[in-house]
Nucleic acid binder design. Structure first.
Lengths: 162, 162
DNA sequence: CCCTACATTTGAAAATTTTCAAACACTACA
DNA sequence: TGTAGTGTTTGAAAATTTTCAAATGTAGGG
Protein backbone atom coordinates (compact mmCIF):
# COMPACT_ATOMS: atom_id res chain seq x y z
CA UNK A 1 0.00 0.00 0.00
CA UNK A 2 1.34 3.44 -0.86
CA UNK A 3 1.52 6.45 1.43
CA UNK A 4 -1.41 8.09 -0.34
CA UNK A 5 -3.50 4.94 -0.06
CA UNK A 6 -2.88 4.80 3.65
CA UNK A 7 -3.92 8.39 4.04
CA UNK A 8 -7.05 8.17 1.92
CA UNK A 9 -8.18 4.93 3.47
CA UNK A 10 -7.72 6.15 7.01
CA UNK A 11 -9.62 9.35 6.24
CA UNK A 12 -12.41 7.31 4.74
CA UNK A 13 -12.49 4.94 7.72
CA UNK A 14 -12.69 7.85 10.16
CA UNK A 15 -15.35 9.46 8.03
CA UNK A 16 -17.50 6.35 8.32
CA UNK A 17 -16.71 5.79 11.99
CA UNK A 18 -17.71 9.33 12.90
CA UNK A 19 -20.87 9.00 10.91
CA UNK A 20 -21.71 5.75 12.67
CA UNK A 21 -21.18 7.45 16.00
CA UNK A 22 -23.63 10.14 14.95
CA UNK A 23 -21.27 12.95 14.06
CA UNK A 24 -20.81 14.55 10.69
CA UNK A 25 -18.53 12.56 8.45
CA UNK A 26 -16.59 15.72 7.69
CA UNK A 27 -15.63 15.82 11.35
CA UNK A 28 -14.08 12.39 10.99
CA UNK A 29 -12.19 13.41 7.88
CA UNK A 30 -10.68 16.48 9.50
CA UNK A 31 -9.76 14.58 12.63
CA UNK A 32 -8.10 11.81 10.61
CA UNK A 33 -6.19 14.27 8.46
CA UNK A 34 -4.84 16.25 11.40
CA UNK A 35 -4.16 13.09 13.37
CA UNK A 36 -1.68 11.82 10.82
CA UNK A 37 -0.17 15.13 9.73
CA UNK A 38 2.93 16.14 11.69
CA UNK A 39 2.64 19.85 10.86
CA UNK A 40 -0.34 22.08 11.56
CA UNK A 41 -2.54 22.79 8.55
CA UNK A 42 -4.39 25.93 7.49
CA UNK A 43 -8.07 25.94 6.57
CA UNK A 44 -7.03 26.30 2.93
CA UNK A 45 -4.77 23.28 3.15
CA UNK A 46 -7.45 21.20 4.82
CA UNK A 47 -9.92 22.39 2.23
CA UNK A 48 -7.49 21.41 -0.52
CA UNK A 49 -6.68 17.99 0.95
CA UNK A 50 -10.32 17.08 1.50
CA UNK A 51 -11.55 18.64 -1.74
CA UNK A 52 -14.22 20.69 -0.02
CA UNK A 53 -15.12 24.34 0.13
CA UNK A 54 -13.97 26.36 3.12
CA UNK A 55 -17.39 27.13 4.61
CA UNK A 56 -18.12 23.77 6.21
CA UNK A 57 -14.46 23.25 7.13
CA UNK A 58 -14.49 26.48 9.08
CA UNK A 59 -17.61 25.52 10.99
CA UNK A 60 -16.61 21.97 11.77
CA UNK A 61 -13.10 23.03 12.75
CA UNK A 62 -14.61 25.35 15.33
CA UNK A 63 -16.77 22.57 16.69
CA UNK A 64 -13.78 20.26 16.92
CA UNK A 65 -11.84 22.98 18.69
CA UNK A 66 -14.73 23.48 21.13
CA UNK A 67 -14.53 19.78 21.91
CA UNK A 68 -10.75 19.99 22.36
CA UNK A 69 -10.00 17.48 19.65
CA UNK A 70 -8.00 19.96 17.60
CA UNK A 71 -6.38 23.28 18.45
CA UNK A 72 -5.16 26.39 16.74
CA UNK A 73 -1.45 26.89 16.70
CA UNK A 74 0.19 30.22 16.05
CA UNK A 75 2.92 30.28 13.47
CA UNK A 76 5.11 33.39 13.67
CA UNK A 77 4.82 35.65 10.66
CA UNK A 78 1.75 33.81 9.35
CA UNK A 79 -1.68 35.34 9.19
CA UNK A 80 -3.57 32.13 8.64
CA UNK A 81 -4.95 29.94 11.37
CA UNK A 82 -3.21 26.61 11.66
CA UNK A 83 -4.76 23.56 13.22
CA UNK A 84 -3.37 20.37 14.63
CA UNK A 85 -4.72 17.45 16.64
CA UNK A 86 -4.50 18.06 20.39
CA UNK A 87 -1.81 16.19 22.23
CA UNK A 88 -4.12 13.60 23.81
CA UNK A 89 -6.80 13.46 21.15
CA UNK A 90 -7.87 9.90 21.96
CA UNK A 91 -8.16 10.63 25.65
CA UNK A 92 -10.03 13.82 24.88
CA UNK A 93 -12.55 12.06 22.65
CA UNK A 94 -13.12 9.70 25.53
CA UNK A 95 -13.60 12.54 27.99
CA UNK A 96 -16.26 13.97 25.72
CA UNK A 97 -17.97 10.61 25.70
CA UNK A 98 -17.90 10.39 29.47
CA UNK A 99 -19.72 13.69 29.72
CA UNK A 100 -22.63 12.37 27.69
CA UNK A 101 -22.73 9.30 29.96
CA UNK A 102 -22.77 11.65 32.92
CA UNK A 103 -25.91 13.16 31.45
CA UNK A 104 -27.46 9.71 31.45
CA UNK A 105 -26.66 9.22 35.09
CA UNK A 106 -28.19 12.57 35.93
CA UNK A 107 -31.27 11.68 33.96
CA UNK A 108 -31.74 8.52 35.97
CA UNK A 109 -31.05 10.39 39.18
CA UNK A 110 -33.55 13.12 38.40
CA UNK A 111 -36.36 10.82 37.36
CA UNK A 112 -35.73 8.48 40.26
CA UNK A 113 -36.16 11.41 42.61
CA UNK A 114 -39.21 12.77 40.90
CA UNK A 115 -40.97 9.40 40.92
CA UNK A 116 -40.07 8.43 44.46
CA UNK A 117 -43.01 10.03 46.21
CA UNK A 118 -45.60 8.69 43.78
CA UNK A 119 -44.16 5.18 43.76
CA UNK A 120 -45.86 4.00 46.92
CA UNK A 121 -49.33 4.82 45.62
CA UNK A 122 -49.05 3.50 42.08
CA UNK A 123 -47.45 0.20 40.99
CA UNK A 124 -46.70 1.53 37.53
CA UNK A 125 -44.79 4.44 38.98
CA UNK A 126 -43.08 2.00 41.33
CA UNK A 127 -41.84 0.13 38.27
CA UNK A 128 -40.78 3.37 36.65
CA UNK A 129 -38.91 4.29 39.81
CA UNK A 130 -37.17 0.93 39.93
CA UNK A 131 -35.94 1.31 36.35
CA UNK A 132 -34.65 4.78 37.03
CA UNK A 133 -32.77 3.50 40.06
CA UNK A 134 -31.26 0.79 37.89
CA UNK A 135 -30.27 3.42 35.36
CA UNK A 136 -28.66 5.58 37.98
CA UNK A 137 -26.78 2.62 39.43
CA UNK A 138 -25.53 1.58 36.01
CA UNK A 139 -24.15 4.93 35.01
CA UNK A 140 -22.74 5.62 38.43
CA UNK A 141 -20.75 2.41 38.25
CA UNK A 142 -19.70 3.30 34.73
CA UNK A 143 -18.26 6.59 35.89
CA UNK A 144 -15.95 4.92 38.35
CA UNK A 145 -14.54 2.83 35.51
CA UNK A 146 -14.17 5.87 33.30
CA UNK A 147 -12.05 7.51 35.96
CA UNK A 148 -9.92 4.42 36.37
CA UNK A 149 -9.42 4.07 32.66
CA UNK A 150 -8.35 7.67 32.17
CA UNK A 151 -5.90 7.32 35.03
CA UNK A 152 -4.45 4.17 33.50
CA UNK A 153 -4.19 5.84 30.11
CA UNK A 154 -2.44 8.86 31.55
CA UNK A 155 0.09 6.54 33.13
CA UNK A 156 0.64 4.57 29.97
CA UNK A 157 1.19 7.76 28.01
CA UNK A 158 3.67 9.02 30.57
CA UNK A 159 5.66 5.83 30.15
CA UNK A 160 5.87 6.17 26.37
CA UNK A 161 5.66 9.90 25.68
CA UNK A 162 4.78 11.09 22.18
CA UNK B 1 -45.14 15.83 38.63
CA UNK B 2 -47.88 13.46 37.44
CA UNK B 3 -47.41 9.94 36.13
CA UNK B 4 -48.05 11.07 32.57
CA UNK B 5 -45.58 13.93 32.89
CA UNK B 6 -42.91 11.52 34.06
CA UNK B 7 -43.58 9.25 31.11
CA UNK B 8 -43.67 11.96 28.48
CA UNK B 9 -40.61 13.70 29.80
CA UNK B 10 -38.58 10.52 29.98
CA UNK B 11 -39.57 9.59 26.45
CA UNK B 12 -38.58 13.03 25.28
CA UNK B 13 -35.26 12.87 27.12
CA UNK B 14 -34.45 9.49 25.57
CA UNK B 15 -35.49 10.76 22.20
CA UNK B 16 -32.98 13.58 22.46
CA UNK B 17 -30.27 11.43 23.99
CA UNK B 18 -30.54 8.87 21.21
CA UNK B 19 -30.44 11.59 18.62
CA UNK B 20 -27.35 13.10 20.22
CA UNK B 21 -25.70 9.70 20.14
CA UNK B 22 -26.45 9.49 16.43
CA UNK B 23 -29.40 7.14 16.42
CA UNK B 24 -32.89 7.90 15.28
CA UNK B 25 -34.91 9.68 17.90
CA UNK B 26 -37.73 7.19 17.38
CA UNK B 27 -35.37 4.52 18.66
CA UNK B 28 -34.99 6.45 21.87
CA UNK B 29 -38.73 6.86 22.24
CA UNK B 30 -39.44 3.18 21.81
CA UNK B 31 -36.65 2.20 24.18
CA UNK B 32 -37.88 4.62 26.84
CA UNK B 33 -41.47 3.48 26.49
CA UNK B 34 -40.63 -0.20 26.81
CA UNK B 35 -38.13 0.48 29.56
CA UNK B 36 -40.77 1.88 31.86
CA UNK B 37 -43.69 -0.34 30.86
CA UNK B 38 -44.04 -3.47 32.97
CA UNK B 39 -46.07 -5.40 30.38
CA UNK B 40 -45.02 -6.11 26.81
CA UNK B 41 -46.62 -3.87 24.18
CA UNK B 42 -47.86 -4.61 20.68
CA UNK B 43 -46.86 -2.57 17.65
CA UNK B 44 -50.31 -1.04 17.68
CA UNK B 45 -49.98 -0.03 21.30
CA UNK B 46 -46.54 1.49 20.72
CA UNK B 47 -47.89 3.22 17.67
CA UNK B 48 -50.79 4.58 19.73
CA UNK B 49 -48.60 5.69 22.65
CA UNK B 50 -46.09 7.46 20.46
CA UNK B 51 -48.67 8.84 18.02
CA UNK B 52 -46.90 7.47 14.98
CA UNK B 53 -47.86 5.24 12.09
CA UNK B 54 -46.86 1.59 12.26
CA UNK B 55 -44.40 1.56 9.36
CA UNK B 56 -41.43 3.20 11.06
CA UNK B 57 -42.24 1.51 14.38
CA UNK B 58 -42.02 -1.87 12.73
CA UNK B 59 -38.66 -1.09 11.17
CA UNK B 60 -37.07 0.47 14.23
CA UNK B 61 -38.40 -2.30 16.46
CA UNK B 62 -36.62 -4.83 14.32
CA UNK B 63 -33.40 -2.86 14.51
CA UNK B 64 -33.70 -2.64 18.29
CA UNK B 65 -34.36 -6.37 18.44
CA UNK B 66 -31.29 -7.01 16.27
CA UNK B 67 -29.27 -5.04 18.79
CA UNK B 68 -30.79 -6.99 21.68
CA UNK B 69 -32.24 -3.92 23.36
CA UNK B 70 -35.80 -5.21 23.08
CA UNK B 71 -37.28 -8.64 22.46
CA UNK B 72 -40.46 -10.21 21.24
CA UNK B 73 -42.47 -12.05 23.81
CA UNK B 74 -45.09 -14.60 22.97
CA UNK B 75 -48.44 -14.18 24.64
CA UNK B 76 -50.60 -17.33 24.46
CA UNK B 77 -53.72 -16.92 22.40
CA UNK B 78 -52.53 -13.63 20.92
CA UNK B 79 -51.64 -13.17 17.28
CA UNK B 80 -49.89 -9.85 17.69
CA UNK B 81 -46.20 -9.45 18.38
CA UNK B 82 -45.46 -8.09 21.83
CA UNK B 83 -42.25 -6.32 22.71
CA UNK B 84 -40.51 -5.57 25.97
CA UNK B 85 -37.10 -4.27 26.99
CA UNK B 86 -34.52 -7.02 27.40
CA UNK B 87 -33.61 -7.94 30.93
CA UNK B 88 -30.22 -6.20 30.94
CA UNK B 89 -30.94 -3.41 28.53
CA UNK B 90 -28.35 -1.02 29.97
CA UNK B 91 -25.64 -3.65 29.88
CA UNK B 92 -26.65 -4.60 26.37
CA UNK B 93 -26.47 -1.02 25.13
CA UNK B 94 -22.99 -0.92 26.57
CA UNK B 95 -22.00 -4.17 24.86
CA UNK B 96 -23.10 -2.67 21.57
CA UNK B 97 -20.90 0.32 22.29
CA UNK B 98 -17.90 -1.87 23.07
CA UNK B 99 -18.20 -3.51 19.70
CA UNK B 100 -17.83 -0.19 17.92
CA UNK B 101 -14.79 0.56 20.06
CA UNK B 102 -13.41 -2.83 19.09
CA UNK B 103 -13.66 -1.69 15.49
CA UNK B 104 -11.52 1.30 16.39
CA UNK B 105 -8.86 -0.92 17.88
CA UNK B 106 -8.85 -3.08 14.79
CA UNK B 107 -8.56 -0.02 12.62
CA UNK B 108 -5.46 1.12 14.49
CA UNK B 109 -4.05 -2.39 14.40
CA UNK B 110 -4.60 -2.77 10.68
CA UNK B 111 -3.13 0.59 9.72
CA UNK B 112 -0.20 0.17 12.09
CA UNK B 113 0.64 -3.08 10.35
CA UNK B 114 0.21 -1.73 6.86
CA UNK B 115 2.41 1.26 7.54
CA UNK B 116 5.16 -0.56 9.39
CA UNK B 117 7.26 -1.53 6.40
CA UNK B 118 7.15 1.93 4.81
CA UNK B 119 7.87 3.74 8.06
CA UNK B 120 11.63 3.35 7.95
CA UNK B 121 11.94 4.98 4.54
CA UNK B 122 9.59 7.93 5.00
CA UNK B 123 9.31 10.17 8.07
CA UNK B 124 5.71 11.05 7.29
CA UNK B 125 4.75 7.41 7.25
CA UNK B 126 6.76 6.95 10.44
CA UNK B 127 4.55 9.59 12.06
CA UNK B 128 1.45 7.91 10.67
CA UNK B 129 2.65 4.61 12.07
CA UNK B 130 3.29 6.12 15.49
CA UNK B 131 -0.22 7.54 15.64
CA UNK B 132 -1.73 4.22 14.65
CA UNK B 133 0.25 2.49 17.38
CA UNK B 134 -1.05 5.05 19.85
CA UNK B 135 -4.57 4.38 18.63
CA UNK B 136 -4.16 0.65 18.98
CA UNK B 137 -2.74 1.02 22.48
CA UNK B 138 -5.57 3.30 23.53
CA UNK B 139 -8.39 1.07 22.41
CA UNK B 140 -6.67 -2.07 23.63
CA UNK B 141 -6.45 -0.58 27.10
CA UNK B 142 -10.05 0.54 26.81
CA UNK B 143 -11.18 -3.00 26.12
CA UNK B 144 -9.71 -4.31 29.34
CA UNK B 145 -11.72 -1.72 31.22
CA UNK B 146 -14.86 -2.59 29.32
CA UNK B 147 -14.49 -6.19 30.39
CA UNK B 148 -13.93 -5.21 34.00
CA UNK B 149 -16.91 -2.92 34.01
CA UNK B 150 -19.26 -5.51 32.58
CA UNK B 151 -18.07 -8.01 35.15
CA UNK B 152 -18.66 -5.54 37.96
CA UNK B 153 -22.11 -4.70 36.60
CA UNK B 154 -23.06 -8.36 36.36
CA UNK B 155 -22.08 -8.77 39.99
CA UNK B 156 -24.00 -5.73 41.12
CA UNK B 157 -27.08 -6.93 39.27
CA UNK B 158 -26.78 -10.37 40.84
CA UNK B 159 -26.75 -8.76 44.27
CA UNK B 160 -29.93 -6.78 43.61
CA UNK B 161 -31.88 -8.81 41.08
CA UNK B 162 -34.67 -7.11 39.13
C1' DC C 1 -58.47 -23.10 0.36
C1' DC C 2 -60.22 -18.65 1.62
C1' DC C 3 -60.51 -14.80 5.20
C1' DT C 4 -59.02 -12.15 8.65
C1' DA C 5 -55.68 -9.96 11.38
C1' DC C 6 -51.59 -8.85 11.52
C1' DA C 7 -46.51 -7.29 10.13
C1' DT C 8 -43.62 -5.63 6.54
C1' DT C 9 -42.30 -3.30 2.47
C1' DT C 10 -42.59 0.42 -0.75
C1' DG C 11 -42.82 4.89 -3.00
C1' DA C 12 -43.72 9.46 -2.29
C1' DA C 13 -43.80 13.59 0.74
C1' DA C 14 -41.80 16.19 4.46
C1' DA C 15 -38.14 17.47 7.25
C1' DT C 16 -33.47 17.77 8.19
C1' DT C 17 -28.64 17.98 7.26
C1' DT C 18 -24.79 18.88 4.36
C1' DT C 19 -22.57 21.49 1.09
C1' DC C 20 -21.38 25.26 -1.85
C1' DA C 21 -20.63 29.94 -3.63
C1' DA C 22 -20.95 34.39 -2.52
C1' DA C 23 -21.47 38.10 0.63
C1' DC C 24 -19.71 39.84 4.72
C1' DA C 25 -16.56 40.97 8.59
C1' DC C 26 -12.27 41.23 10.68
C1' DT C 27 -7.29 42.01 11.20
C1' DA C 28 -2.74 43.32 9.96
C1' DC C 29 -0.23 46.22 7.57
C1' DA C 30 0.85 49.96 4.37
C1' DT D 1 -7.81 55.05 6.48
C1' DG D 2 -7.60 51.99 2.67
C1' DT D 3 -6.42 47.43 1.00
C1' DA D 4 -5.31 42.62 0.80
C1' DG D 5 -5.66 38.36 2.89
C1' DT D 6 -8.08 35.92 5.99
C1' DG D 7 -12.13 33.49 8.50
C1' DT D 8 -17.18 33.41 9.07
C1' DT D 9 -21.94 33.70 7.95
C1' DT D 10 -25.75 33.15 4.88
C1' DG D 11 -29.20 31.55 1.59
C1' DA D 12 -30.02 28.34 -1.71
C1' DA D 13 -29.26 23.72 -3.75
C1' DA D 14 -28.34 18.89 -3.10
C1' DA D 15 -28.43 14.86 -0.52
C1' DT D 16 -30.09 12.20 3.09
C1' DT D 17 -33.22 10.69 6.57
C1' DT D 18 -37.70 10.29 8.54
C1' DT D 19 -42.36 9.58 8.13
C1' DC D 20 -46.74 8.28 6.27
C1' DA D 21 -50.38 5.87 3.68
C1' DA D 22 -51.12 2.29 0.90
C1' DA D 23 -49.83 -2.02 -1.17
C1' DT D 24 -48.08 -6.36 -0.30
C1' DG D 25 -46.89 -10.45 2.24
C1' DT D 26 -47.89 -14.02 5.82
C1' DA D 27 -49.77 -17.06 9.22
C1' DG D 28 -53.82 -18.94 11.80
C1' DG D 29 -58.59 -20.16 12.00
C1' DG D 30 -62.56 -21.36 9.75
Amino acid sequence: MTKDDLKLQLIDAYSQAYQNLGYSSLMGKIVALLLITPEALSLDQISEELQMSKGPISQIARRLKDHNLIEKVWIPGERKDYYRATEDIFGQAFRNYTSSMRKNRKLGERFAQHSEALAAADPEVAYFNQRMQEMEAFYTLMETFHRQFLQAWDQEKQAVPG
